[in-house]
Nucleic acid binder design. Structure first.
Lengths: 359, 359
DNA sequence: CTGAAAGCGCTTACAG
DNA sequence: CTGAAAGCGCTTACAG
């Protein structure tokens, strides 16, 4: 059908700045001023142009706009570095990179800055660096609350939008929060575990974390307990906080706990450190204990596959990074509105479905 | 910091067609010819230009290219219409619309065409229509196999890329398949049900579908049975095919089945019609029967919430539509390679996590 | 086989 | 307060 000559370029773009200018009897420069609400246009012509814009249902051509602007919008993403204890953060980082790759050609750049999650100073140094570098938007995993707030106050003053990634600080002027609904997530964990329990079973809740003000686990635990209360399950819940992440320390604590509570039938680990607990249970031949925890990390998947971990709850970590960047893009570049919160789904990962999961 | 004058435009783009042209001592028109592999360039200059492109690590500016091209790429999406029995298709349709909205500004347009899934003729009519309309790419839910093949042969002849959505036809020259891994999905269903069963339990597999050559359910059932075989679970599996979708017909069949197999403890419905079965079980007060089925439709969610359905397996139907369109965009516009298969995750939806699910 | 020129739709100094 | 003109990086007739 290629040979059929198509009468193509007779109708030129009937709703560009040119057309508006023509109809309003002004130059395109003036139209441009009105479109961007810049000063220096008489109220009268401004009104006229705006009316024509309405009539024409004008939408600016984004490609042309970006091309002419020629400037690049820069986003800084501040997240924990990826180490053995924070393997989780590989996925959000990948999501940020995917976003960068996708929108770079439209003049948006995403620069990741990785801080050491057990070192406040490393965070401060990065925050300082960023504030000196004139970024147009910030993506932030607010592990260190006070330090984060300081940074964000400055952003607010400079009118730089910022989004929270993976955990939220209430009452901030963030553009949006991209992350899990922690409370409900804990509730789901409880439900899954309860399917394996008797009303009289004993369970253990384990929180393993070093530094960081992370309060996510509190919401998780609240959701978890809510479930047992709601259904009046009489399970005895022991909880333990471990401030070290190495296997030896964790094993020592757990050995101690199991000494006093040998009948524990189920363990809930409130974050991705679940593989360490699984490792302990595996090594100490406690295969009957049901285990549930968080996140799609290689170690966790290993223990999911060998049956030590029964469920992993995941929140599409890669997508969190991607969406965090994209919401700034939507806001800054496309001028779209962005919902104040974007909750990730609560994904249930088992041995059977894990291989098709896209973290 | 705005007042600091930035020495900006001194370094112009050092890797555009202009720069290449300068270095190669040719005009940008010639560079353009080489970039797009058009004929009419001497082997020698072609080689030289290609070398410079290498050196400069040149990547064309997509915005400028689309802007200059001025033409729009048109994608046709052929999927079942959304009716009471095919509510599933609302989500992929929404995904297609989301893609359209997102890439329209780059000159790509996604046109949905909805056929009646129980009327081959409606499909044929649409196929004919599309073949006459010069689309640049096709998204197809291949419910009617022979008719689809006819359409796709023509696409292949005309060199129009096409992608399969939600179900696959083997051995076709499709760009990609976007949809569930059906076999494994059935396997997961079996695993979930088996958690509720004794080794001697009886179960029922129900397939409800009218017309359409859909063979997805076969893979699902194979995966389902594989699980029971693999773990040597002695459960007796009854299966039933119902070629009507109205409640009355389904209820009649099921009444009959339960007459002979009163002890059925679990039902697996191989598609989104699970709400009809749930409705029957609910009405006949068989709340002890475990139920699992497919898809996040309003009716299904209703029965998930009231506890009749225990699990829904979902495959991110909205995203399927979105990704189907985006893979054609990637291929046609961005010139990227696209994986031959993109399997959706196997999502497990329960009463507890459904409200955060993004279908 | 090759190049000069106009143009895509918007933006931005600059001059008035 | 307003406009003419050059330019963003690429594409496309058209002329040679």
């Amino acid at each position: 059908m290629k040979e059929v000559p198509k009468p193509d370029n007779q109708q030129k773009n009937l709703s560009g700045v040119k057309e508006i200018a023509k109809r309003a009897n002004v130059s395109i420069a003036t139209v441009d001023r009105v479109i961007h609400n810049r000063s220096g246009v008489s109220a009268k012509t401004k009104a006229k142009i705006n009316q024509i814009i309405e009539e024409l249902n004008y939408l600016p051509n984004l490609m042309a706009s970006r091309l002419a602007l020629g400037k690049t919008t820069r986003l800084a993403a501040i997240i924990p570095e990826v180490t053995e204890e924070s393997e989780f953060w590989l996925a959000p980082l990948n999501g940020l990179k995917r976003a960068d790759k996708e929108i770079r050609q439209f003049g948006i750049e995403v620069d990741p800055f990785l801080f050491n999650p057990s070192d406040r100073e490393s965070f401060k140094a990065i925050a300082k660096n960023i504030m000196e570098s004139e970024y147009d938007g910030i993506i932030l995993a607010p592990s260190f609350i006070e330090e984060s707030k300081k940074l964000l106050d400055e952003c607010t003053r400079k009118n730089i939008p910022f989004v929270f990634l993976d955990s939220n600080i209430p009452d901030q002027s963030n553009l949006t929060y991209i992350g899990p609904p922690y409370f409900q997530s804990g509730y789901v964990a409880a439900n899954l575990l309860s399917r394996r329990l008797q009303p009289t079973s004993k369970l253990l809740v384990v929180n393993i974390a070093t530094e960081s003000d992370s309060f996510n686990y509190l919401q998780i635990e609240n959701g978890f307990r809510k479930y047992f209360k709601e259904f009046e399950l009489g399970c005895e819940i022991t909880r333990i906080d471990i401030r070290e992440t190495e296997y030896e320390s964790v094993a020592r604590y757990l050995t101690y706990v199991f000494m006093f509570h040998a009948e524990i039938e189920a363990v809930f680990v409130t974050n991705s450190q679940v593989s360490t607990v699984a490792s302990f249970l595996y090594n100490s031949k406690r295969s009957h204990v049901a285990v549930i925890g968080y996140d799609y990390t290689p170690e966790n998947i290993r223990y999911l596959r060998n049956g030590t971990i029964d469920f992993l709850i995941c929140h599409q970590a890669e997508d969190q990074g991607y969406r965090a960047a994209m919401s700034l893009y939507q806001y800054l570049v496309l001028g779209q509105r962005v919902p104040k919160e974007y909750f990730m789904p609560i994904d249930i990962i088992t041995k059977e479905n894990h291989e098709y999961y896209r973290n």
